[in-house]
Write a protein that binds this DNA or RNA. Structure first.
Lengths: 282, 282
DNA sequence: CCGGATCGATACCCGAGAGGTATCGCTGCC
DNA sequence: GGCAGCGATACCTCTCGGGTATCGATCCGG
């Protein structure tokens, strides 16, 4: 199977529409139809159910979509890491570390300082991204190592070392009655009248959209809370950056957050090993 | 990057010889030279140092060899799993479980029985292979799930659940003086005069070749031990199959062996989840 | 119930590029 | 210095990927 065929199939499987997929790929529709037919013939498997009005994935097609995305990521990763290995010799970064914007600030700077002080330390670039993007960046080679937060981020398929565990705190407007309490329970802060959460913690530890107003950054969230328009539950670490008009109260029964350093298992470079070692020594 | 180019590069990088690589790939040498040049041009990276007498990998080339193998495995896996997903509907196996030949017999049959008794159980094929091959089979899609033994097998990049832990025993000819002891230490059995080990446990838990005679199967190994030509250290579980003329004595300070069930993180099918659940309930 | 719109498949053509053969240029060795 | 081994180059062929035009089926509005 060629990566071209995989890319074509993934595009069609995502769009479920040959015309749009062809447009996205920058080719005409007929060659795309033929390429998919050829792929099906070569695999001996029907991947798509087409009527002349709609396209749907077969079970096998769903498998190829999932596995094909992973394979394309792996191919991309091979190219990116190779290029970076070469450019590292001419001033590029040797390692790219990615973390969610607005998290692990203290821990990260301590880690970078500790690593930079080591013998043989190499250039480390830091990349900030939105939630859920880190794993993608690791898998497709744009990053080499990440700071993740269990159980929010998935660490499936990654090697990890635990760095720190912390509880979570509820963020409320300063002066709210509950801020007088020494600690809270989840039941106290979910569904506070007038203070909806922009997101809620699902039972499996991931965030899902809640009823509160949307926000784009931590600053926005803090401002919404200070204005008495929202509340939130976040790891303790956020207390370091809170404005004065937002109060934090520990939530005893919120799941514990573990910060881990994670990397793709097959890319065990010397530089990466050094960084991981520095991290575990913190 | 196309998989064809990756396959070509991996062949050359492994052979370090364009002629042999071309032969292995079933093409002539000139197109291979050109394909590699084109790959280097497209990546903008020198992958190979060629003199007219020898070929060597550059640092970037070594990265591409490692990452490229993983990417090719992922592409193969996508094709194999897709084909299997389709053939499962027409009588093929839904899941392929792989384990090292000669290990986990008792545990495996209990697992298969327990799973088969579940509602919604699907066909499970069992594949036996040599040491170190299981991870490869999982990564390239020939198998879906494996029984591995830590610390001998690497579980990097796999999701795992622990099933059982056990100590290790020294295998000696029946009647050997040490068989009178209730337990031993590693120091007692390494370098026994006249009883060399065909392999030795390296400090990191992997096997490396030792000074003893080579063997191809557990039966051969047992026979060598019975004849007084070798000794070995194996997980306790092997006691179930030992012939009468081989004695087993626990080795207190040998590393504990953990049997785990492992699967590639992105292939979380319903059938696989059921099998894993059955395994953890054992 | 019919005509147009939509969408995937087919027919046909063209050019890029993958692969083959012949040969060159360099290097180490007897 | 001649020769053998090896990778690179020159040049040819032909497959196949991609484009345009069009068909056939289906849905929908009037």
């Amino acid at each position: 199977m060629e990566t071209r065929e995989l890319r074509y199939f993934v595009a069609v499987a995502e769009e479920l529409h040959f015309g749009r997929a062809a447009q996205r790929l920058g080719i005409a529709q007929p060659p795309l139809s033929r390429a998919i037919q050829q792929l099906e013939r070569r695999l001996g498997v029907a991947l798509l159910e087409r009527t002349s009005r709609a396209v749907a994935l077969t079970d096998a097609g769903a498998v190829l979509l999932r596995e094909g995305r992973a394979a394309l990521d792996a191919v991309d990763a091979a190219g990116r890491r190779t290029r970076r290995a070469a450019h590292a010799a001419t001033g590029g970064p040797d390692l790219v570390l990615v973390t969610k914007a607005g998290t692990a600030g203290e821990l990260l700077s301590k880690l970078l300082d500790a690593y930079a002080a080591e013998a043989g330390a190499v250039t480390v670039d830091v990349l900030l991204c939105g939630p859920g993007e880190q794993e993608k960046l690791l898998r497709d080679g744009r990053a080499d190592v990440a700071l993740l937060h269990r159980p929010f981020d998935s660490t499936a398929g990654l090697d990890t070392e635990e760095l720190r565990t912390e509880g979570q705190v509820a963020l409320l407007p300063a002066g709210h009655p509950l801020t007088a309490r020494a600690h809270l329970r989840l039941a106290d802060v979910t569904a506070l009248p007038g203070l909806p959460m922009p997101y809620v913690l699902a039972p499996d530890g991931t965030y899902v959209d809640g009823s509160g107003p949307p926000f784009r950054s931590h600053e926005q969230l803090y401002q919404l809370i200070a204005l008495g328009r929202a509340s939130a539950v976040l790891p303790e670490e956020c207390r370091a950056h809170l404005p004065r008009d937002v109060a934090a109260v520990p939530v005893l029964d919120a799941p514990t957050v573990t910060t881990v350093i994670a990397w793709p298992p097959q890319s065990r470079s010397r530089a990466l090993a050094g960084l991981v070692r520095a991290a575990t020594r913190l």
